[in-house]
Design a binder for these strands. Structure first.
Length: 819
RNA sequence: GCGGGCGUAGCCGAAUUGGUACAGGCGCACGGCUUAGGACCGUGUGGCGCAAGCCAUGGAGGUUCGAGUCCUCUCGCCCGCACCA
């Protein structure tokens, strides 16, 4: 093969050329091709907030390397990209600087695309999706209407989280550690009419199907399961003295004989009905105080429990005792029924409350019947033990008690077994401008009227007046607000709320399968060909929000027969973040490294390989500028080895035979292939470095650039294809390769070449390493033992003791056990 | 508090899942090339010991022919969730 020598590796001189070549060759331009297996490779699309830095690129480099690898493995690879382009930052910037959101967003997209290009990160740009463009958001609106039609979108007055800084409501999922996920402000509660998606209707399936996601990280599944928060228990009705009843949810019906008082949330609607005249003033004062508390203060475990007596009493249906009803903010209005039966003996929160307000504490569970009256100095909360002081149920185990008491309540018609979830419906209304307008109108005669499908899109006006008070400018854009009812033609008003941007990102992966469809959100045939996403790669910060919402969407669309699979992402990988100088690489910390800087100093390939080599991809990693130098040295070395002429021979170095080189090549192919399949890019890079080191040793020892050598060079070149793609193309061309290396098949392991004629057997005596002996591969135990016993080291250690037995691991180790 | 995970050289980290502990990179040392270099190239590099060897995977036990890997206890760190009845 004709080789063209080159004096030095000059990345800046070669990289742009190959970017053009890939674009011309249509890398990642794909159609539904049944002759090849499909592979849908996806990285989470970004919000275009400004220039990218090398921290962002870890995700894109991993995704790009994997996509290129799959191309080389012969897959029909869909590898699209887009922009989650609606959102608050662009709007806030517009308020500050007057630059319209579309202008700044498009500017940021252009910059980012350039940066992806120079790093050699390519996508199916012919399928690019931008969520703020009309040809995308009209279909987001279309899907909203579909949800409405299916009864999965509804408007309701509710106490919702309001962020005073961002001037909008937030979904439950967007309250992180008690504060707004975006700006860190403590939210307040507001009573507002808002749009919701009925995600709770899918709670059980979202939980059950986590089991199907065996190629998702365990911790993401655990986080989602906890978020959904299924609890099995029972609802029990307690009659209120004089009038009505109070329903509670409990996971421990077995403790009902220990319920010595009840507690209801301050927001509970029954409060006003039951409060007695004597307690009215105290109760009103208490409710007023709890309202002024922020959510974070109220939910804190350190928060000292407070409460007030309502004056009313209920009857415990099992003990028939008269028990007081208290109002306390440690009971949440939004969980269960907003009311509890308090069992201070067996619930630490109730215990604390009972102590403070001198309420009776009774033991109804004990380790044994005999210990039934032992005093309690803290709540006793085990799931084993026996029921005591529990009337006819005394003596039952906790497990049986739960079943028998629940069944008894059912029979008496005062309760039923039930399941509760923590998951709340998804609040999707946002009182903000830069988002998808919710496509409904309000008619004085017809109420809420959905905009007919054929009138979509409801265009977001772009000529609006931003306001310094943070109010949604749509409210004041008359041309937008004023419309006519599509049913009766009378004047009507448009909804001015826009949708949570997480709605946009809940279906973008479907739009990629037919990005320019002008007639529907996506084509079922195409979606069926490509879905599910085979490999999804992105940040752990989306463990709940985006990933849960997308799963919900997929299930709704599955039920609507619009898609044929009900989970969107078959495999998920969450990469760690890159730190530098002690902080996560971020624009705000000023510790980012610009891709341009990287390319100018080292070339894109060094940046790419460094990000793959930096550490286990799922873990955070510290950026080390010297480490980048090390990778640059590695690539320069590969260049010299593959394209160099003759090297200086240094005598006296360990002999490396051509067959050793060939074997190492195949071992490397084997290792790199397995590592890449398992997303262990760091060890894949180490393996390539090892091969390079052996190539160096070979030449140092006077090895010739013969056929075996050439084969190793070509194998190395192909393996570099996904990781250092520009360098690989250049090496491929200079070695006389045809076409592009990215379209070459990934090298195959020749199992015959992996076998060694000789193996090093570790010889242990009583488990301690005593010698290493070269033996023929496949040697049996008796022969290996024979050889091992000849070792002088072994003989000295064994002395005159008898070798009682030997443990033999074929071709690896023999352990001689004495005595 | 509950759940998940981690602890290996001076640093980042490997270790076919119970079988040679520390691959690869950084750093460091020495050598080469250089007028010179914090550049480049190469070699070496866990600790103690003259050596045979011994000691080393946060700590203490245990199981095993054999433990970084499994079990028990313990210390430390990280990440979720957090008054969810």
């Amino acid at each position: 093969m004709a080789r063209t020598a080159a004096p030095v590796y000059d990345p800046q001189a070669i990289e742009p050329k190959w970017l053009d070549a890939w674009k011309k060759a249509g890398l990642f331009r794909v159609t539904e091709d049944s002759s090849k297996p499909k592979f849908y490779n996806l990285v989470m699309f970004p919000y275009p907030s400004g220039p990218l830095h090398m921290g962002h690129f870890r995700n894109y480099v991993i995704g790009d390397a994997f996509a290129r690898y799959k191309v080389m493995r012969g897959f029909n690879v869909l590898n699209p990209f887009g922009w989650d382009a609606f959102g608050l930052p662009a709007e806030n910037a517009a308020i500050k600087s007057g630059i319209p959101p579309r202008v700044s967003t498009e500017g940021n997209i252009a910059i980012s695309k350039h940066e992806l290009d120079i790093m050699g990160v390519l996508y199916a740009w012919d399928r690019e999706v931008t969520t703020c463009n009309e040809d995308y958001y009209r279909w987001t609106q279309w899907l909203f209407l579909k949800f409405l039609e299916l009864g999965l979108a509804y408007k309701q007055k509710a106490a919702v989280n309001w962020c005073p800084k961002d001037n909008t409501v937030l979904a439950n999922e967007q309250i992180v550690n008690g504060v707004c996920w975006r700006c860190g402000t403590k939210p307040t509660k507001k009573e507002l009419e808002q749009w919701f998606f009925r995600i709770t209707a899918y709670a059980q399936r979202l939980l059950d199907d986590l089991k199907k996601l065996d190629r998702w990280p365990e911790r993401v599944r655990v986080m989602q399961a906890n978020w959904i928060g299924r609890s099995e228990g029972a609802e029990l009705d307690f009659f209120i003295e004089h009038d009505g009843k109070l329903r509670v949810f409990t996971t421990r019906p077995d403790t009902v004989f220990g319920a010595t008082f009840m507690v209801i949330a301050p927001e509970h609607e029954i409060v006003q009905k039951i409060v007695t005249p004597e307690q009215r003033a105290a109760v009103d004062g208490y409710i007023e105080r709890t309202k002024s508390e922020t959510e974070i203060e109220r939910l804190s475990t350190e928060h000292v429990k407070t409460g007030v007596f309502s004056g009313a009493y209920a009857i415990n249906p099992f003990t028939e005792e008269r028990i007081p009803i208290w109002i306390a903010d440690y009971v949440l209005a939004t969980y269960g029924t907003g009311a509890i039966m308090a069992v201070p003996g067996h619930d630490s929160r109730d215990f604390e409350f009972a102590r403070k307000y001198k309420l009776p504490i009774r033991r109804v569970i004990s380790v044994s019947r005999e210990a039934s009256n032992e005093p309690l100095d803290s709540a006793y909360e085990p799931y084993e033990g026996v029921l005591v002081n529990s009337g006819p149920f005394t003596g039952l185990s906790v497990k049986d008690g739960i079943q028998r008491i629940a069944a008894d309540a059912e029979r008496k018609g005062i309760g039923r077994r039930t399941v509760t979830y923590r998951l709340r419906d998804w609040l999707i209304s946002r009182q903000r401008y830069w988002g998808v307008p919710i496509p409904v109108i309000y008619c004085p005669d017809h109420g809420i009227v959905p905009v007919p499908y054929d009138q979509l899109p409801v265009r977001l006006p772009e000529n609006v007046q931003f306001r310094s008070d943070g109010q949604n400018p749509l409210l004041h854009t008359e041309s937008f607000v004023n419309t006519t009812c599509s049913t009766c033609g009378k004047p009507a008003r448009r909804e001015t709320d826009t949708m949570d941007t997480f709605v946009d990102s809940s279906w973008y992966f479907l739009r990629y399968t037919g990005a320019h469809d002008q007639t529907q959100p996506f084509d079922k045939t195409k979606a069926d060909y490509w879905m599910p996403v085979d490999q999804y790669t992105g940040g752990i910060e989306h463990a709940i929000l985006h990933l849960l919402y997308s799963r919900f969407f997929m299930k709704v669309l599955f039920d609507a027969k619009m898609v044929s699979v009900d989970e969107p992402f078959a495999a998920l990988f969450t990469q760690g973040m890159i730190h530098r100088n002690g902080y996560v690489m971020a624009k705000s910390k000023g510790n980012g490294i610009a891709p341009d800087e990287m390319v100018e100093k080292y070339g894109a390939d060094t940046g790419r390989v460094y990000e793959l080599f930096i550490g286990p991809p799922e873990m955070d990693a510290e950026w080390n500028d010297r480490g980048v130098d090390g990778v640059a040295r590695f690539l320069h070395r590969v260049w010299r080895l593959v394209l160099g002429e003759e090297d200086d021979v240094v005598a006296g170095v360990v002999q490396v035979l051509p067959e050793d080189l060939t074997r190492k090549l195949h071992e490397t192919i084997d290792k790199v292939t397995k590592d890449v399949e398992a997303f262990r890019f760091n060890t894949a890079m180490s393996a390539l470095m090892e091969l390079t080191n052996l190539m160096q040793d070979y030449l140092q020892a006077g090895g010739r650039r013969d056929e075996a050598w050439e084969a190793v060079c070509l194998g190395m070149t192909r393996m570099l294809g996904p990781f250092a793609p520009h360098l690989a193309e250049e090496l491929w061309q200079r070695q006389g390769g045809e076409g592009l290396v990215v379209f070459q098949p990934w090298p195959e392991v020749d199992a015959a070449l992996l076998r060694r004629p000789q193996v090093t057997i570790v010889v242990q005596v009583d488990g301690r390493l005593r010698d290493r002996i070269e033996m023929p591969a496949g040697i049996d135990q008796a022969a290996a033992r024979e050889l091992a016993l000849r070792s002088q080291n072994v003989q000295r250690v064994v002395g005159d003791r008898r070798v009682q037995r030997a443990v033999y691991v074929p071709d690896r180790l023999i352990n001689l056990v004495t005595q």
